[in-house]
Simulated assay, not measured.
Amino acid sequence: MPSQLKLHQLRAFVEVARQGSIRAASRLSGISQPALTKAIQELEQVLGARLFIRRQQGVVMTDVGDNFFRHASLVLEELRVAQEDIQQRLGLAGGRVNIGVGGSVARTIMPQVITQFHREYPLVQVRIVEGQLVSMIPELRQGELDFTINTYDQSHLDQELSFEQMMQRDYKVVVRKGHPMERARSLAELQQCDWTMPTPKGSYYRLLHDLFAERGMAPKIVVSCETFMACTSLVAQSDFVSILSVDVINDPVLGHQLVALDLDDPLPKATFYLIQRKDTALTPMSAYMAQLFRRYCQ
């Protein structure tokens, strides 16, 4: 009976867990189904616990398996980062950088950063995830994202993430051109409209939620759009009201159908941060990517 955990067992377990079946994991990884099955069985013997429940349509993790998956996937990501760190310090500029960005950053600063980075390091693979911070927490925790440039509102995340202030941006209430409330001058006039905004959890939109509450407003946010593309498309083609960055509103492609309302009560500025796990150092390539964001955010 195997006495200690081995790396190939971890990789087999994580791949099967992510794919939901041994067959799919085998097809994606190029490892035979019998080899994956054997590795997982050996791992279960080492741990003394079942990690999967086998079903006709695939596998489902047990509670023990689900908890172990978080540790195993983080270990594999840390090993990948450590290996890439050594290669990059030796001048072998390969590897991968994984970043997250908020919607307005994706439309403005991010293209400039990525263009310069790719020009200097064409062999480095770059993965970009767009969205609110709350949607990126699992990948930040697992080491699958190196960092994100996003808005943030104080929460329990202070204990596990670090926050470096990068820039501030103006946000405004927006409607489509020709909207019945196009000439509104206050939030109170818009209270009965249908609103669409991202989730308020842990982001700039939490500040807006608190602002509405302070003024005794409860706008009907009946549709939540987690990407700015979905939000701008909905507002541009309907009577929904939203709040977007002036960078998006002024965009020549996206903004030509939108009108920023000139309200008597301006909205608070949004503060963007570079956010990463406290206990993880960036690889040289990730650190350089972060430095480029600092430069372009100024």
Score class of each variant (00 low, 15 high):
Ser135Tyr: 13
Phe117Met: 11
Val124Phe: 02
Gly94Lys: 11
Gly91Pro: 02
Thr108Asp: 15
Ile99Arg: 02
Val113Glu: 01
Gln83Lys: 12
Arg70Glu: 12
Leu79Gln: 09
Ser104Tyr: 07
Arg107Phe: 08
His118Gln: 15
Arg80Ser: 01
Val64Ala: 04
Val126Arg: 04
Gly100Cys: 07
Leu76Met: 08
Pro138Lys: 09
Arg80Lys: 02
Gly65Gln: 02
Phe68Met: 00
Gln132Arg: 05
Leu79Tyr: 04
Pro111Cys: 13
Gln112Ile: 01
Arg70Asp: 13
Ala93Phe: 14
Asn98Phe: 09
His118Ala: 13
Met136Thr: 11
Gly94Glu: 13
Arg70Ser: 09
Arg80Tyr: 00
Val97Glu: 01
Asp85Ala: 13
Arg70Gly: 06
Leu74Pro: 05
Val64Gln: 02
Ser135Gly: 08
Leu123Phe: 11
His118Tyr: 09
His118Arg: 13
Gln88Leu: 03
Glu130Gln: 14
Leu123Thr: 07
His71Phe: 07
Gly103Pro: 02
Leu92Asp: 14
Gln125Asp: 15
Val75Cys: 14
Val81Thr: 12
Gly100Gln: 06
Leu90Gly: 08
Leu140Tyr: 03
Arg89Pro: 02
Gly131Ser: 00
Met61Lys: 00
Leu90Ile: 10
Ile114Tyr: 03
Val129Ala: 13
Gly102Val: 00
Met61Glu: 01
Gln87Arg: 13
Leu90Trp: 06
His71Tyr: 11
Thr62Met: 01
Thr115Leu: 14
Asp66Thr: 09
Thr108Gly: 15
Asn98Trp: 04
Ser73Trp: 04
Ala106Pro: 04
Arg89Val: 07
Arg96Lys: 14
Arg107Pro: 00
Arg96Leu: 15
Leu90Ser: 09
Arg70Thr: 03
Thr108Ser: 15
Thr115Lys: 14
Glu120Cys: 09
Arg89Ala: 10
Gln132His: 03
Val97Leu: 03
Ile137Lys: 10
His71Trp: 11
Ile109His: 01
